[in-house]
Every structure is written in C-alpha cells, then in structure tokens.
C-alpha cells in the first residue's frame, strides 16, 4: 500500500531524513517510534506530500507522491491523516467539520455527507456533540472527531502523527481505543506514536528511527523481544521502565 524507498530530505544543507526504506502492506499496522527530532513526523508527512523530499520515491497505492505530475489533492483525499493538535476547523460545527470535505472534495450530497458523518461520530461515541464547536470539546473528544473526519473520506489508509502527544493522560485511552478498533477492522495504518502499549496490542511491525534514519524495522515481537540495535534498546529501556 505504502512503499517508501531510499527517501532523503534536506532543509537547506541540513539533512533530516537519510535513505529511509520501508513498506506498509494493505491491512498492516506499523508503528513508527523514536526520540524527538528523529524525523518520524517528517517521514509520515512525506507520505501524503505535506512535506517535500529531495531523493527517493514514495508510492501510495501505486501512485508516486514525489512525481510532479501527480494530483496530490486527489491522492490526499483518500489518505486519512490525524494530527498531533487535532486541527479541526474552529469556525465550523462538529457536523460541518465532518461534512465539508465530503461535499467539496468528493462531491457527495449534503444529506449523504451528514448521514455518513453522524454515523462515524456515533462510532467514536460523540453523536451528542454534533452541533457543538471544536473549542467546546475536550482534547480527547476533538481528536476522536478528527479521526471520524478522516474516516468520512473513506480512506484507503490512515496516517497518525503523534495523535495522543498533546492530550492529558486521562484522555489518551479514549483515542487509543478508537485506533485499536480501527486496526482490528483491518485498516492500513502508519502511526507515529510513543504509545508502546498500543504498539504491543495491534502493531504488526515497529519501525524505530534515530537521527533521520530507520535504525530498526522489525516485526512487533522481535522488536519488543530483543531489539537488535543498541539505540533502540536504550530508547525502549527509557520509555518502558515506568
């Protein structure tokens, strides 16, 4: 589904990504972790072209992201993305947030978009909030709406960029629960996250990055059992020991 091949990126002369290669197969859940500044967020943003990269190729469902001829807007419309800071549109009600892209990008009718949006809102347990505005919801609720908004576009895969990093601890689980459910339904997911519990539960593979490079790319059990790289061992010992 997603193939990342030898991808490198520079900001000016500073290299932020170095020769990254990995793939995410259809139905697979891959967790990308690593210390901050390791390039994991940058890498996931390259997948739907939010960030440009200078070398290598990324294809999503056979479409090359870096190709100037690619219609990126069209590609993005069926690649769902969830952001660290939710990024709901503050001036729109929750229902409008869920329907605007369905009607304006996919050309669905208002009725169709609303019923789809409300069904997804129901699924993330927020049907009662349909007429509220994002600023009136808690962080966890906003993030669940953001997931519903992405799902409303019937995405072929989902990208999560640190979806729980901006949340209060007691709100993390309500978001993770939605993500676990999604993973168990067979959604193709690439998740940048530090939530190792989530990784243990649903990930098929774990990718560990450091200094802009993929250091370890292993099946979940292998990664948590005995990470091969010393750097990954250190990282795990720091975040798992408490």
């Amino acid at each position: 589904m997603i193939e990342i091949n030898q991808v490198s990126k520079w900001y000016g002369s500073f290299q932020v990504l170095t020769d990254n290669t990995t793939r995410i197969n259809t139905g697979e859940v891959v967790v990308v972790c690593g210390p901050s500044g390791s390039g994991k967020s940058t890498l996931i943003k390259c997948v739907n072209g939010l960030e440009a990269f200078q070398q290598g190729t990324i294809t999503v469902n056979g479409v090359s992201v870096g190709d100037p001829a690619t219609n990126l807007a069209k590609l993005r419309s069926h690649v769902g993305m969830v952001f660290q800071h939710f990024e709901l549109f503050p001036h729109m009600s929750i229902t409008e947030n869920l329907t605007i892209a369905q009607t304006k990008v996919l050309g669905r009718s208002q009725d169709e978009a609303v019923s789809k949006g409300l069904a997804l809102l129901d699924r993330v347990g927020l049907r009662a909030q349909a007429d509220k505005f994002p600023g009136q919801l808690s962080g966890g609720q906003q993030q669940r709406v953001a997931i519903a908004r992405a799902l409303a576009m019937d995405p072929i895969c989902m990208l999560f960029d640190e979806p729980t990093s901006a949340l209060d601890p007691e709100m993390i689980n309500e978001v993770l629960d939605v993500m676990v459910e999604l993973a168990q339904e067979g959604m193709t997911m690439m998740c940048v996250t530090h939530e190792m519990g989530f990784a243990r539960k649903v990930a098929h593979r774990v990718v560990f990055m450091d200094h802009g490079q993929i250091v370890e790319d292993a099946a979940k059990d292998a990664f948590f059992g005995t990470p091969r790289s010393e750097r990954a061992q250190q990282f795990l010992s720091k975040i798992l020991n408490h």
Binding site: L50, L75, H78, M81, E87, L88, I100, A101, M153
Partner: peptide, 9 residues
C-alpha cells in the same frame, strides 16, 4: 496541513 490532508485544493 489539515486542509491539504483532506484533499482541498
């Protein structure tokens, strides 16, 4: 970014 990610032009 959110607008872009939803496929808006």
């Amino acid at each position: 970014a959110a607008g872009q990610a939803l496929g808006f032009t």
